[in-house]
Lab assay of single mutants.
Amino acid sequence: MTEYKLVVVGAGGVGKSALTIQLIQNHFVDEYDPTIEDSYRKQVVIDGETCLLDILDTAGQEEYSAMRDQYMRTGEGFLCVFAINNTKSFEDIHHYREQIKRVKDSEDVPMVLVGNKCDLPSRTVDTKQAQDLARSYGIPFIETSAKTRQGVDDAFYTLVREIRKHKEKMSKDGKKKKKKSKTKCVIM
């Protein structure tokens, strides 16, 4: 069974824990209790493949930012979460993405942009803004509501699919490099 290491990042209060708990335990946590770091595991079937999701729910508070490099190193894919009623959390996505790329030393890291709290009427981040940002990053965008469960499975499952595509691409690139290195030079 394939294991996928997913990391949920975003500013404090955007609903990272609520999304994760909704996926794992099928219930909505409405009281806000700032996370330092929590880890969850769940076995699911995605596109006919049974897999184990190892999900790291991270601290959004700035005082825990020193811990970010460590979990970013171990993560295979990242859910970059903002709240649709919090423009600052949307603007912060850029910083999370840049930090992930720096730590992973790669421009090509599996990510999904997630606009959470889409059940709320007080939207300050337009869907088109988020779609445009995701398009500019070359990553999928999904709106979710941890409260109603809308888009929750889709967000995590899409990230797994992005990781699969990335692994497939990397193995193809690896095979191309191996083929090239088999060419021999004969000096007579």
Rank of each mutant, 00 (worst) to 15 (best):
2 T>K: 11
2 T>V: 08
3 E>S: 02
3 E>W: 01
3 E>G: 03
4 Y>L: 10
4 Y>M: 15
4 Y>P: 15
5 K>Q: 15
6 L>H: 01
7 V>R: 01
7 V>W: 13
8 V>A: 06
8 V>Q: 02
9 V>T: 13
9 V>I: 11
9 V>L: 14
10 G>Y: 02
10 G>D: 02
10 G>I: 01
11 A>T: 13
11 A>V: 09
11 A>L: 14
11 A>Q: 04
12 G>R: 04
12 G>S: 08
12 G>F: 07
13 G>T: 06
13 G>A: 11
13 G>K: 05
13 G>C: 10
13 G>R: 07
13 G>I: 06
14 V>W: 14
15 G>F: 01
16 K>F: 14
16 K>N: 03
16 K>V: 00
17 S>P: 01
18 A>T: 04
18 A>D: 02
18 A>L: 00
19 L>A: 15
20 T>I: 07
21 I>N: 02
21 I>W: 04
22 Q>F: 04
22 Q>D: 15
22 Q>A: 10
23 L>W: 07
23 L>G: 12
24 I>G: 15
24 I>K: 12
24 I>M: 14
25 Q>H: 07
25 Q>F: 06
25 Q>W: 11
25 Q>S: 15
26 N>A: 12
26 N>V: 03
27 H>I: 15
27 H>N: 11
27 H>T: 13
27 H>Y: 15
28 F>L: 01
28 F>S: 01
28 F>N: 00
29 V>W: 14
29 V>T: 07
30 D>T: 13
30 D>Y: 05
31 E>K: 02
31 E>Q: 07
31 E>I: 03
32 Y>L: 07
32 Y>P: 02
33 D>A: 02
34 P>D: 00
34 P>L: 01
34 P>S: 02
35 T>A: 00
37 E>V: 01
37 E>S: 01
37 E>Q: 00
38 D>K: 00
39 S>G: 04
39 S>D: 02
40 Y>N: 00
40 Y>L: 00
40 Y>S: 00
41 R>E: 01
42 K>I: 11
42 K>S: 09
42 K>T: 11
43 Q>H: 07
44 V>T: 07
44 V>G: 09
44 V>N: 15
45 V>H: 06
45 V>D: 13
46 I>V: 11
46 I>Q: 15
46 I>T: 13
47 D>Q: 09
47 D>K: 14
47 D>W: 03
47 D>R: 11
48 G>N: 09
48 G>I: 03
49 E>W: 05
53 L>F: 11
53 L>C: 06
53 L>E: 03
55 I>F: 03
56 L>S: 07
56 L>C: 10
56 L>K: 01
57 D>N: 00
59 A>S: 08
59 A>F: 00
59 A>T: 04
59 A>L: 00
60 G>S: 04
60 G>C: 01
61 Q>A: 11
61 Q>K: 12
62 E>M: 05
62 E>P: 10
64 Y>G: 09
64 Y>W: 10
67 M>P: 10
67 M>L: 06
68 R>N: 15
69 D>E: 11
70 Q>T: 13
71 Y>Q: 13
72 M>T: 08
73 R>G: 12
73 R>L: 07
73 R>M: 11
74 T>N: 09
75 G>P: 07
75 G>C: 12
75 G>E: 04
75 G>Q: 08
75 G>H: 04
77 G>T: 11
77 G>A: 14
77 G>S: 04
77 G>R: 01
78 F>I: 07
78 F>R: 01
79 L>P: 01
79 L>C: 06
81 V>Y: 14
81 V>M: 13
81 V>K: 01
81 V>P: 05
82 F>M: 08
82 F>Q: 04
83 A>P: 14
83 A>L: 04
86 N>S: 09
87 T>N: 06
87 T>E: 14
88 K>I: 04
88 K>P: 15
89 S>L: 02
89 S>A: 09
90 F>C: 09
90 F>H: 15
90 F>R: 15
91 E>G: 05
91 E>V: 05
92 D>A: 10
93 I>H: 01
94 H>F: 14
94 H>N: 15
95 H>S: 14
95 H>R: 13
96 Y>F: 13
96 Y>L: 15
96 Y>C: 08
97 R>M: 15
98 E>L: 02
98 E>D: 06
99 Q>P: 01
99 Q>M: 15
99 Q>V: 10
100 I>A: 03
100 I>P: 03
101 K>E: 11
101 K>W: 13
101 K>D: 03
102 R>A: 09
102 R>D: 12
102 R>G: 05
102 R>T: 10
103 V>A: 08
103 V>N: 04
104 K>I: 13
104 K>F: 15
104 K>L: 13
104 K>C: 15
105 D>E: 08
106 S>P: 04
107 E>W: 06
107 E>N: 08
108 D>M: 09
109 V>S: 06
109 V>A: 08
111 M>Q: 03
111 M>L: 07
112 V>K: 01
112 V>A: 03
112 V>P: 02
113 L>V: 12
113 L>C: 09
113 L>I: 15
114 V>L: 10
115 G>N: 06
116 N>H: 14
116 N>M: 15
117 K>T: 15
117 K>Q: 13
118 C>P: 14
119 D>Y: 08
119 D>P: 08
120 L>S: 13
120 L>G: 14
121 P>M: 10
121 P>K: 10
123 R>M: 10
124 T>S: 08
124 T>V: 07
124 T>M: 07
125 V>K: 06
125 V>M: 08
129 Q>I: 08
129 Q>N: 06
130 A>Q: 11
131 Q>H: 11
131 Q>G: 11
133 L>K: 04
133 L>D: 07
133 L>Q: 04
134 A>R: 12
134 A>G: 12
135 R>V: 08
135 R>A: 07
136 S>C: 08
136 S>W: 02
137 Y>C: 06
138 G>T: 03
138 G>C: 05
139 I>T: 08
142 I>T: 07
142 I>S: 14
142 I>G: 03
143 E>C: 04
144 T>E: 03
145 S>P: 00
147 K>L: 04
148 T>A: 15
149 R>M: 15
149 R>Y: 14
149 R>A: 05
150 Q>N: 10
150 Q>S: 15
151 G>R: 11
151 G>C: 09
151 G>S: 14
151 G>Q: 13
151 G>I: 07
152 V>N: 11
152 V>I: 10
152 V>Q: 14
152 V>G: 10
152 V>A: 10
153 D>N: 08
153 D>C: 06
153 D>Q: 09
153 D>V: 07
154 D>C: 04
155 A>F: 15
155 A>C: 14
156 F>G: 01
157 Y>S: 11
158 T>A: 12
158 T>F: 12
159 L>K: 02
159 L>W: 02
160 V>W: 05
161 R>G: 09
161 R>I: 14
161 R>N: 13
161 R>W: 10
164 R>F: 07
164 R>T: 15
165 K>P: 02
167 K>N: 06
167 K>F: 04
167 K>C: 04
168 E>L: 11
168 E>F: 05
169 K>G: 10
170 M>W: 14
174 G>L: 11
175 K>C: 10
175 K>W: 14
175 K>G: 13
176 K>T: 11
176 K>S: 12
177 K>M: 11
177 K>V: 04
177 K>S: 07
178 K>W: 04
178 K>H: 12
180 K>Q: 05
181 S>A: 10
181 S>C: 06
182 K>F: 14
182 K>G: 06
183 T>V: 09
184 K>S: 13
185 C>N: 14
186 V>Q: 10
186 V>E: 14
186 V>P: 15
188 M>G: 13
